[in-house]
């Protein structure tokens, strides 16, 4: 039972991170109708940049972190302008493939620049673990949960109360109408990519602090798909809920696998099975817009 609770807490924390990444993914999808297969690479690049600043340039954590955030925002905007903008109006397959190409390219580039081995972050916290419900939980995890919550609140505020957030929502709703009301759709696209890359970096750094930075980080980009399909591809809240559900699901599968079934590797595939079922039964997910077409 103890193991069960431990796994559920793990699931919640990892799930919150999935949720954050899924939110970034949904943000790009909502704003610019691009399914971003390179979302995981945003985490990867952000984490590596932060790691490089901390260990090679010996910056204090806060500065390294902020500089990598700024860098990644620029990076996201640049990717949108250089690679995605020429493809506006091309078929879906081209846009998907270009992000797949980006993912392959940057994954290899990162391996080339930083090697294939996981590198640990320098120690950031004095206390390594705290007690929650009588269970030891690493303080990084607590921080990550806190950071995730902060990001979510930030997203909520941004979309609800700021001018730019409103412009983004308008663009997501209908590009043509938004453009005719004087919203610069190009700016919105670029900004969406910038924000998405930045927030992904936060997630990347958190995971990097916990597990070390390695190319495995880009796997988070693929976990986003079950999460956002579960929650609904065009719902930011959905991405969040879906992420947490996927995190819980993985750990639940892991629990049953290790305790009863002993099939092995269930942890990795269960989200995909669930995703297939969701796609068959309720393709628009829990919170997505029901897109009904009748002929």
């Amino acid at each position: 039972m103890n193991l069960f609770i431990q796994l559920m807490i793990n699931g919640l924390i990892v799930g919150a991170l999935y949720g954050v990444v899924a939110m970034c993914f949904v943000l790009i999808y909502k704003a610019s109708q691009v399914v971003n297969f390179a979302q995981g690479e945003f985490l990867l690049i952000g984490a590596w940049v932060c790691w490089w600043l901390l260990t090679k340039q010996h910056l204090p954590f806060i500065w390294g972190f902020l500089i990598s955030l700024a860098f990644m925002t620029l990076f996201g905007v640049l990717i949108q302008i250089v690679v995605l903008r020429p493809l506006i109006g091309e078929p879906v397959i081209s846009v998907i493939m270009v992000t797949v190409g980006l993912s392959i390219f940057f994954q290899a580039l990162m391996k080339w620049m930083f090697g294939v081995f996981a590198q640990p972050f320098p120690k950031i916290f004095a206390v390594t673990s705290v007690n929650i419900l009588g269970l030891p939980v690493q303080s990084v995890y607590v921080m990550s949960l806190g950071v995730s919550l902060l990001i979510m609140l930030g997203f909520g505020y941004f979309f609800k109360f700021t001018r730019m957030g409103l412009a983004m929502r308008a663009t997501a709703y209908n590009q043509t109408v938004a453009a005719s009301l004087g919203i610069s759709v190009k700016q919105v696209f670029a900004l969406a990519w910038g924000i998405s890359a930045m927030v992904s970096t936060v997630a990347g750094v958190v995971v990097g602090v916990v597990n070390g930075v390695s190319s495995g980080l880009s796997g988070y980009g693929l976990k986003v798909f079950p999460a956002s399909i579960l929650g609904g591809l065009d719902s930011i809240i959905g991405g969040l809920v879906g992420g947490i559900l996927v995190g819980l699901m993985e750990n639940l599968a892991n629990f049953f696998d290790s305790q009863y079934l002993h099939w092995g590797n269930l942890y990795d595939v269960v989200p995909y099975y669930v995703m297939i079922v969701i796609l068959m039964v309720k393709p628009y997910g829990l919170f997505g817009t029901e897109d009904i077409e009748r002929v």
Binding site: V83, P86, L87, E90, S94, M97, V98, V100, G101, L102, S103, I104, F105, F106, Q107, A108, L109, K111, W112
Partner: peptide, 22 residues
């Protein structure tokens, strides 16, 4: 590093073709 370079080339070729010669 030729393995990584090969992967990078695959990615770059995909992106390049989609942008310049769809």
């Amino acid at each position: 590093n030729v393995v990584f370079l090969r992967d990078m080339a695959i990615g770059a070729v995909i992106i390049g073709f989609l942008i310049f010669e769809p």
